[in-house]
Design a binder for these strands. Structure first.
Lengths: 210, 210
DNA sequence: TGCATGTTACTGACCGGTACGTCTCTTGAT
DNA sequence: ATCAAGAGACGTACCGGTCAGTAACATGCA
């Protein structure tokens, strides 16, 4: 009742006081994701965060610096979430690869889903050398390498082709979701990936029911 | 020699004088595609076009109006190119669907390829009611309907699922191309789609060579 | 005292958009 | 044939607002 809930959060035992820097960071991440990098100005960020502009620039050299930091964190969280989903899937190689697909399929159903921040940034920031692009590039390379590894666990002739196929479907689902929503082609993500897996496993076609 | 070549072009018989409006339009389309909507200001457009700002605003009510017009034209050209590719593929249903895939696969190899303007715009313009978004949405719906039709020509149990699978792969290839280029997962577009088609046709797995 | 933060006020560049003057080409009357 | 007037097309110069970013100083708290 006496506590200002906007300046501290209750993390179990210890209430953590959020610094101006972390408030800027969290707010920026949210706004950048929801509305885009270029659409969000620093004035809006500091206003939403309830801090002032000098506090932003004391913590981050520039807006680009803030963008890169936000992307780095999003990439880290995204990677951890995927690894957790794979780990939770157990030991069966097919289940593990399908867990990645399922992970994204679940995200597509969230109302607040607005695509992949990395992919969005790559489109918004067309300057080749932009620090944000580098982060996004590394993130996608890692994701591809992980999918390659998962596909290699399966006993298929061309694991890289299977992995790329799954990645294409996932990225395609994310892309089409922007325009046509979860009821567009994105709804066929799981069935399509299951089909690709079955195809590469060389089994008989049996996954035609969505 | 006496003719000012920057103000007229030789179209066979009749030299056509390019108006300020058309110069604005052509320049804007190019810049919007190459660098993005938000990254390109009206000042840059009129400078590149060699005209002045009032000329832009005499022809278009606003920048958003210009954006929508550019998108409309790009959508029209894109649709015509796809239909031409399908028509050139002949009568075999499988060839016709594959022609769509091949069409995009070819575009991915162009050095100047920078994704689909519709998809890019959907990410850049996050405001739900933006006129540009409406154009992009209609374009994607049309493309999906066309792919549905092509898939239905094939004798498969679930043509819509096949069509969505192909769309996911195409859109995924376009999306990943932004970050990882033509040597990323995008290189597996044709092989993946061929696999999906074979899968739905219920034939034996035989398309594992890229 | 010392540190994190807020306050105020500012910069120069750029944004989308516009009021108004100028040029040229066409048209019609003489 | 000549000239004047209208109509479009176009440019000059500018608007208010917003952008990212900063300097100088005040405040509150440990």
């Amino acid at each position: 009742m006496a506590e200002n809930s906007s300046e501290s959060v209750d993390c179990g035992m210890e209430p953590i006081k959020k610094t101006a820097a972390s408030k800027v960071f969290d707010t920026a991440r949210d706004l950048f994701y929801r509305r885009g990098i270029r659409a969000v100005g620093v004035d809006e960020i500091v206003f939403e965060a309830g801090v002032t502009k000098p506090s932003l620039y004391r913590a981050f050299k520039s807006k680009d610096d803030l963008v890169a930091a936000c992307l780095q964190e999003s990439a880290k969280e995204g990677r951890e979430a995927i690894l957790a989903a794979v780990a939770a899937a157990g030991d069966d190689p097919q289940d593990r690869l399908r867990a990645v697909v399922r992970h994204f399929a679940d995200k597509l159903l969230c109302p607040e889903f607005r695509g992949c921040l990395m992919s969005n940034v790559a489109i918004e920031l067309s300057e080749p050398g932009h620090p944000g692009r580098v982060v996004a590039q590394n993130c996608k390379k890692e994701m591809r390498a992980l999918t390659f590894d998962l596909a290699r666990e399966l006993n298929v002739a061309e694991p890289e082709l299977l992995a790329d196929g799954v990645i294409l479907a996932i990225e395609g689902a994310i892309a089409t979701h922007h325009i046509l929503g979860s009821q567009g082609p994105a709804q066929s993500l799981v069935a399509t990936c299951d089909g690709l897996i079955e195809l590469h496993l060389g089994r008989r076609v049996a996954v035609l029911t969505q």
